[in-house]
């Protein structure tokens, strides 16, 4: 196991620092380092030769994706998750996790595109309205149908979508009756709420009405302390 040459290298701080400094970029173990201007010019010339993600513009409207391609990828995601899970609950949990990491990215992108009018959402109702309109419009091209507050509990809210885009071409087998693949979208909502410090658990449920067999209700249950904080801050 002993590798003396490695150990000597690590314990020699001058050597490690010059090596990393040449690479450029932030290194958390070294902290902020100012490269000599000659290095910076050298790095700049190598970096500008290739087009990278920092050269793309974010301000133009996102090009729309074909519904068929989207459905196909989503279909593969469901199949992959299903293969690795034992029951409906585990499958929904996996889809929720896949959506969760998308939430903060969508949120930041939407606020960036608002430009000068951009603001942070600090009230519970406002963040829900933001999800109901802006997020839905960016992701699905239209606003969600309803936003309701539960009449029984003060920490429960519901967003309803009569015709969810993601599950339009997904038919659930009879023996998996409880499954709603919009758990993925619920994950996106949960990711947005969590990163805004409105910790909540979000789940998707199918609630059929005549003419809308796919009608989905996103059930949002906030943590107790989020409600308490809201009452302290805004309803004195």
């Amino acid at each position: 196991m002993s590798q003396p040459s490695d150990i000597i290298q690590v314990s020699n701080p001058t050597q490690t620092s010059t090596k990393s400094a040449l690479k450029g970029g932030y290194n958390p173990s070294l902290g902020p380092i100012q490269l000599p201007t000659s290095y910076q010019a050298q790095l700049a010339s190598t970096a500008s030769s290739k087009r990278n993600i920092y050269d793309h513009s974010l301000s133009r409207r996102a090009p729309e994706v074909n519904l068929s391609s989207l459905s196909y990828i989503f279909n593969v995601m469901i199949q992959y998750s299903q293969k690795n899970s034992k029951g409906i609950q585990e499958l929904e949990g996996k889809l929720n996790t896949l959506g969760y990491s998308i939430g903060p990215k969508v949120l930041e992108l939407i606020t960036l595109r608002e430009g000068k009018n951009a603001k942070r959402e600090i009230k519970l109702v406002e963040i829900l309205q933001f999800i109901h309109t802006q997020v839905w419009r960016t992701l699905f091209g239209r606003v969600a149908d309803e936003l309701e507050k539960s009449s029984e509990a003060d920490d429960e809210y519901m967003i309803t979508d009569k015709q969810p885009l993601m599950s339009e071409f997904i038919s659930v087998p009879k023996d998996m009756g409880q499954l709603n693949v919009n758990a993925f979208v619920a994950g996106i909502i949960e990711g947005i709420l969590d990163v805004c410090y409105f910790q909540a658990s979000v789940s998707a449920h199918t609630v059929e009405t005549p003419g809308c067999p796919n009608r989905t209700v996103f059930f949002i249950k906030f943590d107790r302390d989020v409600i308490e904080r809201e009452n302290l801050r805004f309803h004195k």
Binding site: K23, G24, G25, Y26, P28, L43, A47, P104
Partner: peptide, 15 residues
């Protein structure tokens, strides 16, 4: 990239 990952890109640094 995940939220809270360290940004070590040298291009980011230059920008």
């Amino acid at each position: 990239y995940k939220v809270n990952d360290v940004i070590s890109s040298s291009v980011f640094d230059l920008k």
